[in-house]
Design a protein around this nucleic acid. Structure first.
Lengths: 204, 204
DNA sequence: AGATGTGAATGAGTTCACAGCT
DNA sequence: AGCTGTGAACTCATTCACATCT
């Protein structure tokens, strides 16, 4: 069955809530309690989980440690995901150094840039390579995720190079419409569009 | 009529495409050509635009300068939107300095942090104030958008302070589920969830 | 008794297909 | 003739409500 990204994103959310409950020592919880505590929908929690099997106990609820384990495994968070960052401008550098981004199972293992002043440097613990060596760096680091933080004009060329290098997925911050390769899962983070949405609702 | 954020986000996209065409000297375009060039849906372009009036000429298409003007005005991009950044860690600093973020009609006019080492400093052209002075800073700068780049634990407190200070909208980067105030439009950018989505589809 | 898991109902969003202008 | 604007059809997503199980 094909799972929607909306569902997957909610699973992430549920997992985060469960970790927080586990930290408080709670051992089990019903969909209703979970929904009320975190402003979610109980029916949706059950529907989302039910797509992957029967995780709960009728009349009781869900065992938190068990559910955490199942969701962690489902989301692929039981193994390390090496990432490379392409474009060491402000945003690329910040993400390389950010503990929120570079933590848990996600590890920034290398950087790429085309600026000679940056190549060979170690920025926030990450060594920056020449972007022309994308293929070699992807192969050597076994990077699974490429984080595109280059200017819009450079995005398509760097995207194509990442795809050719055999990367498996891409998180794109460049504010441009990439011509996509179906074999590589790509997720856009377009802050310009986010701001313009806020602008619209400010004015409306 | 209540417009969906999905529609608004596509308007941003259309506007971007139109700017690019205008730069190439194209004067008018049909929904079909626009769709083909940028991998969009012609029917959806027409439906989206039709929600706001009749912008096109039947049998001909859309006048690009005219449509750009209408969309710019619709999205509220014909005036400046002052922004403040709350939390001058890696991400906050990067956004303050990033031309992609801090450009066009969006201007970072001040920063807030609770670290004495940062307060009073000018980082990337932006003066950092004590977070306890949120209300005064919002009033003085007339900031419309608050960009929350604090750690998850600090997010709710800073959110509440922004709301109390009279901010109109918030872009939240903290990976947490905020308890929201309905009067303040809030948009989440949750990079952790984006990465976990990629992780899921890597494994599945 | 009480909460899960799920078909059925509703709602949101997209695509189709064509009437109506220019 | 050709493209917009739009009701109708369809697909996707969420919510409801209850049979099912512990």
């Amino acid at each position: 069955m094909e799972i929607s990204p909306l569902t997957v994103n909610r699973l992430s959310l549920y997992l985060r809530c469960l970790h927080s409950l586990e930290g408080e020592g709670v051992g089990r919880i019903s969909s209703l309690e979970l929904a009320q505590q975190f402003h979610l929908s109980a029916a949706q929690i059950r529907k989302d989980l039910a797509q992957f099997g029967e995780f709960g106990i009728r009349g009781v609820g869900y065992e938190i440690p068990n559910l955490i384990e199942r969701l962690t495994s489902l989301l692929g968070l039981d193994r390390i995901h090496p990432m490379i960052i392409i474009g060491f401008g402000n945003l690329g550098r910040a993400l390389a150094a950010s503990i929120g981004f570079n933590s848990g199972n996600f590890r920034v293992v290398a950087g790429l840039d085309n600026d000679p002043a940056k190549i060979g440097r170690r920025v926030g613990g990450v060594l920056v390579h020449d972007a022309s060596e994308t293929a070699a760096v992807v192969a050597a680091t076994e990077a699974e995720i490429g984080v595109l933080t280059v200017p819009a004009e450079a995005a398509q060329a760097n995207y194509d190079r990442l795809v050719a290098a055999g990367i498996r997925s891409i998180l794109n911050f460049a504010p441009t419409r990439l011509s996509l390769n179906a074999a590589v899962r790509t997720k856009d983070v377009d802050l310009r569009i986010d701001l313009e949405e806020l602008s619209y609702f400010l004015s409306s």
